[in-house]
Structures are given as C-alpha cells and as structure tokens.
C-alpha cells in the first residue's frame, strides 16, 4: 500500500484529517447523534440599527436526501417552530417562508425544502438609548427532518450584535443569501391578473390570466386539507395564462369559499393568491 502513515508532515496531516473525518462520520452516524441538518442564526448586517426593522435568519443546511417543511407541510411532517429569547425592547416577527417544493414521501407529497433554506425573520429594535452593549439574540428551534424516515431535533442558536448608526451599517458576509432568499418569497399576485377557481365534481380548476402564456404552474395551498396533495397537478398553457387542475381533498366536508396559497409559475417566480371558488352549476342570471 502506497499510503505512508509515518512519512513526512504532509502525510501525517493527511492521516490526521482522515482520522478526524472518520470520527466525525462516526459521530454523525444515525445510531449516535442523528441531526441531518445544521441550524445557524445569521444577520443581514453586522449591526442592528436603532428604531427600525432589521432582518435575521435561521439558516438550515440540510443533508442530501433529507428535507424540512414549509408552513403547510402537506401530507405529513410539520414546519420548524422558533422560541425567541430577546432582550427587552426587541420584537421578532413571523417567519417569511420562501416558496416550497413538492417532495415525494412514499405515497404522499410533502411541501418543504431540500438542500438548504434561510427562514428570515424581522426584528424590530428599540431606540439607541436603550442599549449600548451588544445585543444577544437567542432562539430554540424545533424541527422535524425527514428522508424515508423522520427525526425530530432541537437546536439552540445565538448571535450577538452591536448597535450602529443607520448610515454606517455594514453588510454581513451573509447579505447575498438574504438578497437571494427575498427573491424566493412569494410576491402578491399583480392586480392586473385575473384569477378564478371552479369547483367541478372532485376537482378544482384554477385559471390564472397573467397576460402571457405560462407553461408551468404548481399550487401550494395554505391549508393542508384542501387538495389531495399527492395528486398530480396537470397544467395547460393558455394564450394569456395557465389552467391547473387540482383534486379536492377527502377532508373537505363543506364547500370551500376561496382557494388560498402560493402558485409557482416557471421562471416568473412565486405568487400569493386567494381565488374565489365558483360552483360548476350556476342557474338563472
């Protein structure tokens, strides 16, 4: 064997690295301490500006093949939850969820994220006079990470940030990730769009007139009990939009007034929609 463990310093370092890698792998093995993801707390800027909203984010780096969940997890699982520990005067807002993906889970479909995601949260800061010391922001994050099996986990994260004048705020090394994440947020559907939904038998037919033909459209409901999440969503391009057929959920026990959620349109990105549902049978008028 050509591998000389007792050779020069370079080889020794390689051996040490190999050993470290092996022991790290051993620690990451499911039997001992399965986590399958890493959570860190990031800030968009190196400091907080007083009396305004600053953005921080929980960064999930997820092991290949595993996923976490959107606010509506789909057929199984649950979204991450956060308990903030903030100094007096600071307030954390709600998580802004980037558009999810459809993730097959045996015979089900989950809505979530693979690879990684930044869950951004606005923090409202008090006037400067309130704090001269660096501010410690901490959180306990509970999550469920799944592949073909699921593992619950808890992460404790923290971040210390000084206050700085608004003019002299410096972007942090994570600023690009914050900008990129904002582009994945569902935007309000433009007012010029015409969106409607038809309740027809066991289906909803969702029509979006965006002004241009769309080839791809995927609907993610806010409520997991509205459509059959695992059913395919055939999309038909129209001259000025797209039509998507959804299967009604077995859990719908009374007529649904609106179809609410997020539609992801190919290259255009994700949009928040709330479409009134018309019944298939309309008499008179």
């Amino acid at each position: 064997m050509a591998f000389d463990l007792m050779g020069g310093s370079h080889s020794r370092r390689s051996a040490l690295l190999l050993f470290t890698a092996l022991t790290t792998m051993a620690h990451a093995a499911p039997a001992s301490a399965p986590s399958h993801l890493r959570v860190t707390l990031l800030s968009e800027y190196k400091a907080l500006a007083p009396a305004r909203v600053s953005w921080i984010g929980l960064r999930f780096e997820i092991e290949s093949g595993w996923h976490i969940y959107w606010k509506d997890p789909g057929d199984s699982g649950e979204p991450p939850s956060v308990q903030w520990e903030l100094p007096a005067g600071l307030r954390a807002g709600a998580i802004r969820w980037p558009a999810p993906e459809r993730i097959p889970d045996h015979t089900l479909i989950d809505y979530g994220y693979e690879g990684g995601v930044l869950l951004m949260v606005p923090i409202r800061t008090p006037p400067e006079s309130a704090a001269r010391e660096p501010i410690k922001i901490a959180a306990t994050v509970k999550y469920l990470v799944c592949r073909d099996v699921c593992v619950p986990g808890t992460a404790h994260v923290a971040l210390s940030l000084p206050f700085s004048r608004r003019e002299s705020l410096q972007p942090s090394g994570s600023r690009a990730l914050f900008i990129q994440t904002r582009s994945r947020w569902p935007k309000p559907a433009p007012r010029s769009w015409k969106i409607n939904a038809l309740g027809a038998g066991d289906r909803f037919v969702l029509t979006l007139c965006t002004g241009a033909s769309e080839r791809h459209a995927v609907f993610f409901p806010d409520d997991p009990s509205v459509i059959k999440n695992a059913a395919p969503q055939p999309a038909v391009p129209l001259a000025n939009g797209v039509r998507v057929t959804l299967q009604k959920s077995d859990l719908l026990v009374k007529p649904l007034p609106r179809l609410e959620g997020v539609v992801v349109l190919g290259s255009k990105g994700a949009f928040v929609i709330s479409a009134p549902i018309h019944s298939e049978i309309k008499r008179g008028g």
Binding site: S76, E78, D105, H106, V149, P224, S225, L251, V253
Partner: peptide, 10 residues
C-alpha cells in the same frame, strides 16, 4: 374527519 398528522405510512 380531521387531517391525520405524523410520518408517512411506509
């Protein structure tokens, strides 16, 4: 009727 929660049936 409620939405069941949990892991997918394998």
């Amino acid at each position: 009727v409620t939405r069941p929660y949990g892991c997918s049936v394998k």
